[in-house]
Amino acid sequence: MSVARVQRDVLSVEWVKLELIRTAYATRGGLFAGMDPRAVVGWYAAMALAPWFTHNLTTVACLFVVAAAAVVLARVGPLVLGLFVIGLVLELVYLALAATLFGGDLTAVVALLEVTAKLGVLSLASLAAFVSLDPEKLSDALLALRFPPAVAFAVSYGYRMMPILVEEFATVMEGYRLRQLPPQQRGLLGWRVVVHWAVVAVKAFYPIFLNTAKSVRTTVEALEARGFTFATIDPRGRAIRIGSLRLGPLDLAVLAVTAALVAGCYAAGAQWPLHRS
């Protein structure tokens, strides 16, 4: 088999890692990145809940458009957006298949389409909100909203672990790729190769977790030594953390515009109602 290998900048493991970092730390900027995290969480709650109070397809469609506009304004990266689109398309294909196979007709598809569209609005709002919140802001917002400190910290630490886990995974997979020969007969549609890699991906968890567990021991000791547990009992740390949060004109403007748009969506729904029969 002749091959011509090149260095790829997209769809490689390195790219996935960079995209995760860009997404997690909102390095692309965007409308919501400059806002108070509490306002972003509020905005998210409004957008995520809005579609569930109606069965009017016009309203849902308008909300979908608003959420999509928000995704553009938040400068969501290609990786998560791509995953969202793939997920949505697969969902639609699956719905159509399921409906026809189980003897339903188009009404079943439309019924399920409504739920899918609502979930789509929710997902788009999540993308826009969480891509714009770096872990620190998110965890501060959670603290301000009286979530337990351990939850707030888990969010921020989870984000920090992500690139590490991706890198560990990439190293282990590379080890397998170099040291274990993939099957020589590829089989129909290369099923042997697919099975081989699926098995390897599962086996990879053993070394990844052992290696990570070893390094986490230091982290836990360091957390203890730097007063992490102390902060869960003593309220002063929380006061300092959330003391820097300020609601500004941008936050109020965005919330007002969103409220207006949501109201507009409902108004449009009332004007041109479209319900599944």
Partner: peptide, 21 residues
């Protein structure tokens, strides 16, 4: 490297003093 738990250097250094309020 495993001792660093916050995303930016300033946050990392401030972590102890802020926790102790």
């Amino acid at each position: 490297q495993n001792q660093l738990v916050r995303p930016t250097v300033r946050d990392e250094v401030a972590f102890g003093p802020v926790n102790f309020g």
